[in-house]
Design a protein around this nucleic acid. Structure first.
Lengths: 349, 349
DNA sequence: TTCCCGCATGTGAGCGCTCACAGTCGCGGC
DNA sequence: GCCGCGACTGTGAGCGCTCACATGCGGGAA
């Protein structure tokens, strides 16, 4: 057997190997523990000693190895984000909000994109992140299938859901879709429109359902009739296609569309049919994507504060990580109606 | 001193502590090394032994601790992506492409968003990822300032740049902007337009410059005159504003816009001024964002294959990580002209 | 039979850090 | 003059794994 002192286990000849804690300790003439104490701002280090250590750290360009720290502490200071389609404006913005908040708190962010939306894929994405060693996970997947998955997660992993989650299981941060949709609907009612149509998002999206509810409740509150519900799939294409139905109906003067892309498609269809917006038909969108102000005409829509959503998520998640218990709560962020030029007062008939 | 055998160092009483390798070894009646061999598909394990080990793994729901693996191997199997604004379609799509490719190769992806664009912020974002222990970094920051930063990176960190990088320093994966711009310009020339205007992106974006070059070279090749260059900042707003200038010019029949958002703004401005598109003015965009097909009119544009860019990045990066040398290369992905309805033949004068 | 060799498996060190202690030193109180 | 106690610093084990090497064992060649 190779004797323990037979030869150095590696070429320690300063061969560009990054400095480790003992190197710093040696240079500063202290023990590795003292270096560790300096790193963690322990009060029990004499002024002079601290300075010697800091100098050695600078001199060697020493950086603590996060992997070693993680191994011994059991904390990686990294978070995972599971998301369905980060190409969409909403998820991308939420992700950005989370990343910025995490950065401020000294956490790294890993991402896992979902290719398909079902229970297993969500569960396995979370597991994958977990296997990478993240301390907690944010799930941005506001679909029924994903929500279901949250119930089937191992209870020891700290989780926060964005927009949707089963009651009493995981904490949720959400924009108040109901309020936003109601505000959009009320806006049209106040302009004197009698029949407010709604193009909703896909059935399995909870945001779509909540916007429908908001629309309905505003209608009911005003004693207005409820036209048949129309469905799209969030894409501009579907807005365009659904526009077809609307054109077939008589007396359509106002449409509340569940997102800006579909509103864009609808605008396009109306334009092709020679129907003026807002002259003949007023349109309201949802999301306030950056392009919305440049649609033809500029779109009245409902803005969501995604950065705030990100910050709230992080707050909840770190709370869970630190306390080691999965509490339940629901944080709601208020949306804001942005009035532009796609809506106008109903013409008197 | 506490004797080494005085008491167990932790409550090992099966207290829900996740199983570690020795637990598996014990259960299977082998050494931890054999478990490791099974995990790594070593050929030197007898059939029966392997099965016993696998059974124990399943029974204990054992998952190798990635942090411990990283500590000893010096590899974390994670990658970092530095990006300026993941809310934009291009960067978001590239990020997605990278994530999917990384996932397929068993790598995790961490993100770092840049809040401002300058040398330090890029360098520090890379350093931050590095300090988190990533094996390599992809930089999506096609601006001059960022490119400059790539030269100032510590040479030991494997890096790949997307779209732009200083020659001979880091590997680059890019869409052939020059060819795309030239194709767009040629398309307009072939439709009989004499003067092809160009609304470019901001000066410090390399993509903007390359598109300008592509436009110029197509113009030169056709012996066409070069109208004054116009500049926007990628936003729909700037396209709208620049449209103002265009309206003041006489005889404008064709505009090649450096991205779809600015094209949207321009379309809007033209529409407001009562100028028909494409009847009076043909417009070509760049990017083919999902909404482009639903603009008024549907936009002729140049499509970029971001997924392919992501895949190529990963390939180059893993090559560097494995070989431990930073080679230089430039991989170019071909773009594709998508003809829709915003362009038409020039009217005879 | 004897020896060697290659397959299968085990052993121990060590990755770079933190945690729990165990010193050590100087000073005030009895 | 001695003890005790606080402030400071050092020691060693161990986190969960992989790497390098040692060892055991059976079979074919000599």
């Amino acid at each position: 057997m190779r004797g323990p002192l037979a030869r150095p286990r590696r070429l320690k000849g300063r061969g560009q190997r990054p400095a480790v804690m003992t190197d710093v300790a040696k240079l500063a003439g202290v023990s590795h523990q003292t270096v560790s104490r300096v790193l963690h701002d322990s009060p029990h280090v004499r002024r002079g000693t601290r300075e010697r250590v800091l100098k050695a750290i600078r001199q060697l360009d020493y950086r603590p190895n996060p992997v070693a720290q993680a191994l011994v502490t059991g904390r990686s200071r990294s978070l995972g984000v599971v998301s369905f389609d980060t190409t969409l404006y909403g998820p991308a913005s939420t992700l950005l909000g989370i990343e910025e908040a995490a950065h401020d708190r000294g956490y790294a962010v890993s991402i896992a994109s979902l290719r398909s939306l079902n229970r297993e894929s969500v569960v396995s994405a979370v597991q994958r992140l977990r296997d990478q060693g993240v301390d907690g996970v944010v799930v941005i997947a506001p679909q029924r299938a994903a929500v279901d998955a949250l119930l089937h997660l191992p209870p020891e992993v700290p989780v926060v859901a964005v927009e949707a989650g089963p009651d009493n299981s995981v904490p949720v941060v959400a924009v108040d879709q109901h309020a936003g949709a109601a505000a959009a609907t009320r806006h049209l009612l106040e302009l004197g429109h009698r029949h407010i149509w709604h193009i909703a998002g896909p059935q399995d999206w909870l945001e779509a359902e909540q916007r429908i509810e908001g629309w309905r409740s505003a209608l009911r509150a005003a004693g207005a009739a409820e036209p048949p519900l129309l469905r799209g799939d969030w894409s501009a294409r579907s807005g365009y296609d659904v526009g077809e139905h609307l054109l077939a109906e008589a007396g359509v003067t106002a449409v509340f569309v569940a997102n800006d892309q579909m509103a864009l498609g609808l605008l396009r269809r109306l334009h092709e049919a020679g129907r003026e917006t807002p002259g003949e038909i007023s349109v309201v969108g949802f999301d306030d994507i950056p392009e919305a102000a440049y649609f033809t005409p500029p779109l009245t829509t409902v803005r969501q504060d995604f950065a705030e959503v990100g910050r709230r998520c992080l707050h909840l998640l770190l709370g869970q990580i630190e306390s080691r218990v999965r509490s339940w709560s629901r944080v709601v962020v208020a949306p804001e109606l942005v009035v532009r030029r796609s809506t106008t007062a109903a013409r008197d008939r």
